Simulated scan of single mutants.
Amino acid sequence: MVHLPSRPVMPNSWIARHIGMRAVRSIYIVLLKAKINMLLPFGPLAILLHYVTGKHGWVFFFSLLGIIPLAERLGYATEQLAFYTGPTVGGLLNATFGNATEMIISIYALKNGMIRVVQQSLLGSILSNMLLVLGCAFFSGGIVHYNKVQVFNKSAAVVNSGLLLMAVMGIMFPAVLHFTRTEVHFGKSELALSRFSSCIMLVAYASYLFFQLRSHRSLYNPINEEGDNDQDCDEDEIPEITHWEAIGWLSVLTVWVSILSGYLVDAIQGASDSFNIPVAFISVILLPIVGNAAEHASAIMFAMKDKLDITLGVAIGSSTQISMFVIPFCVVVGWIMGEPMDLNFQLFETATLFITVLVVAFMLQEGTSNYFKGLMLILCYLIVAASFFVHVDPSNDAN
């Protein structure tokens, strides 16, 4: 009887060593490789200061610094996952997880009854994405490709502009109803209208996802670039981590952002008093800049690679998602919690949003970009920031 040699079996020690090496490599790439991760220790420091000193100003400041690298790393992990899902789903994932920071902060603030902070931070996210993020992307791309006209898919931009105008309509009517004193039941009619409009906006956003991912996928195909340029980009773009590692890091980073957001929200009022900065400025300008760190980095990077369709998918797609999904979702969550969260963002904020959407829609109508368009959007954002620095929120006195 002849005995065949048995098939060699990999020793468990080798498998464990391989898994350990992969884990160490993944930790190095995600947590140590990027220079922005130098800010990561500020998160634990903020929590330590919260319990040791109780100085809300410093807790807020260090929490803000600690969330910046987490938001950027969320964007990185989403970008890595997009290599395995394709560009359209990848852009949607980038916008979704890019907005995870704002969404978590909003739910914490809503749980604490800070409705105005929720409204203003979400409004600020829309303004930041449409003016600052898109402006910096157009400016950077225009400088890098100075002798070339950068183009993008105008049809997809028009669809997003239409959704943003619909969101403005949904937010504007409760404010107009309130300030014209034409409500049937004062204080109740605008809340009922807000909840009804939020449900309609959620249906519209779900229809938009079906339109984007299923029925009209070809509409969102990027405009063909030059062949040589595409080959160079394909050589550079290789995923650094596996899709399971990306999913794991998304989960870990989201949990850590959730923990840090709780301390950040608790310290907002104390930081306003300590630094003598209006709560409106903190909510509309500072919080969104931190929350949009992922979109900011991704949009500029893609614009410099002459991939403006992905840039618009990140910046304008994120604004569309916040206005048509996150804001209505917060209204519904507030309804479940018993909090009177509505779409009445007050007259000043609503007018700012309306003018911003018109300016950006005008910039996108030609389907081209350059550094001057980007500069104009950045300067518009500076005007908005200065306006909120001198703006007194009337609802604070009313509450």
Score class of each variant (00 low, 15 high):
V2K: 14
H3F: 10
P11K: 14
S13N: 10
S13P: 01
R22S: 10
R22E: 14
S26T: 15
I27F: 13
L31E: 03
L32V: 14
I36C: 05
L39P: 03
F42Y: 11
P44V: 08
L45G: 09
H50W: 11
V52R: 07
T53L: 13
T53N: 09
K55F: 11
H56C: 04
G57L: 08
W58V: 13
I67V: 11
I68Q: 01
L70W: 00
T78M: 04
L81Q: 03
F83I: 04
T88R: 13
G91R: 06
L92V: 15
F97Y: 14
F97N: 01
T101Y: 05
T101L: 05
M103W: 01
A109W: 05
L110G: 09
N112P: 01
L122E: 01
L123G: 02
I126Y: 06
L132Q: 01
F138W: 01
S140D: 05
V144G: 00
V151S: 12
N153L: 06
K154F: 00
S155N: 15
A157H: 02
N160V: 00
M166E: 04
I171W: 05
M172S: 15
P174D: 07
A175S: 14
L177D: 03
T182W: 06
V184M: 14
L193S: 08
R195K: 14
S198F: 06
C199W: 09
V203Y: 05
A206I: 15
S207K: 12
L209D: 10
F211E: 07
R214H: 10
R214C: 13
S215E: 04
S215P: 00
S215Y: 10
H216I: 08
H216W: 12
P222T: 11
N224M: 12
E225D: 13
E226R: 09
G227H: 12
N229Q: 13
E235M: 14
E235N: 14
E240V: 08
W244D: 09
L250A: 08
S251F: 14
L253V: 07
T254P: 05
W256Y: 10
G270Y: 08
D273C: 02
S274Q: 11
I277Q: 00
A280N: 03
L286C: 09
V290W: 02
A294N: 04
A294F: 06
E295Q: 06
H296V: 00
F302N: 07
T311A: 12
L312A: 02
V314M: 00
I316T: 09
S318G: 13
S323A: 15
F325L: 15
I327E: 06
I327R: 01
I327M: 12
F329R: 04
V332C: 11
V333S: 10
I336C: 08
I336F: 11
E339G: 05
F345I: 12
E349M: 03
T352E: 07
F354A: 14
I355Y: 01
I355A: 14
L358Y: 05
V359A: 11
V359Y: 01
A361S: 15
L364W: 07
N370G: 11
Y371A: 13
F372C: 09
F372Y: 13
I378G: 06
L379V: 15
L379M: 14
C380G: 02
V384G: 03
A385K: 02
S387R: 00
D393T: 07
D393E: 15
S395Q: 12
N396K: 01
